[in-house]
């Protein structure tokens, strides 16, 4: 049962899962970070209110967040084929994972930045700071601990979603769990892959918490 081939397969599964999760989270931030910033800046209490822009970004985030990931995965198949050239495997899975992570990340970023003390923003405005300066040197700086915590949550969520992509041959640990555990009734392999997923989430949560704690200047 625990032949070299199985162990190698699980090893590859770990690498594939991390590969999908890392790139999807990264691309998710490329889209979600400016999205979240724009939500906060254009909001009613923002530094550059714009009801129209806020409404568009807000509704779009709500719509995309309401589509279940498995459905989104299937809806995006043509788009995925267009970009990656195939719909199977871990690289193809990065496309729907990114699209589903982006609005979630936008909301994470929005709530992190919204926590920043309005008084500090006002102080910067009183010094003659423009919108971009306030974003870069006040909002992102003051919210960084919360942003790191949000990134940790996003990473763990995307890892969970990546396992779901196993249903359509997405690669990674989830794929192994479904193929061996579900279709072939090899419960032991399923338990091991699930345990590995739990372990990965634990490790990244710990790393994220540790990083946030080390960087926080508000204590001591």
């Amino acid at each position: 049962m625990w032949s070299d081939a199985v162990i190698r397969m699980i090893g590859e599964g770990i690498i594939e899962s991390l590969y999908m999760t890392a790139f999807s989270t990264l691309f998710g931030y490329v889209l979600g970070m400016p999205w979240g910033i724009a939500l906060v800046v254009s909001g009613k209490e923002g530094i550059h209110p714009s009801a129209l822009l806020y409404r568009i970004l807000d509704v779009l985030a709500n719509i995309m967040r309401s589509i279940p990931f498995l459905i989104l995965l299937i809806l995006l198949l043509p788009f995925t084929r267009l970009i990656v050239g195939t719909t199977i495997g871990s690289t193809a899975t990065i496309v729907p994972l990114t699209i589903s992570a982006a609005p979630m990340i936008a909301r994470m970023v929005e709530s992190s930045l919204a926590e920043v003390d309005r008084g500090v923003v006002e102080a910067a405005e009183s010094m003659g700071a423009g919108v971009l300066f306030v974003i870069r040197h006040v909002l992102l700086v003051e919210a960084r601990i919360s942003l790191i915590a949000g990134a940790t949550i996003s990473f763990a969520t995307v890892l969970g979603y990546s396992a779901m992509a196993g249903v359509v041959g997405g690669g990674g640990l989830g794929d192994i769990a479904i193929r061996y555990g579900y279709y072939r009734y090899q419960t032991d392999i399923m338990i091991v892959t699930v345990a590995l997923l739990v372990l990965l989430v634990q490790i990244f949560q710990w790393l994220g918490n540790h990083l946030a704690l080390t960087l926080d200047r508000r204590k001591k």
Partner: peptide, 28 residues
Amino acid sequence: LAMRTDIGMIFQNFNLLMQKNVIENVML
């Protein structure tokens, strides 16, 4: 914005950047 650099302002709650040290706050 240029005019505002000619008008300093201080507040009841100080409104310092809590994630930056003293000299970085003054340099802002």
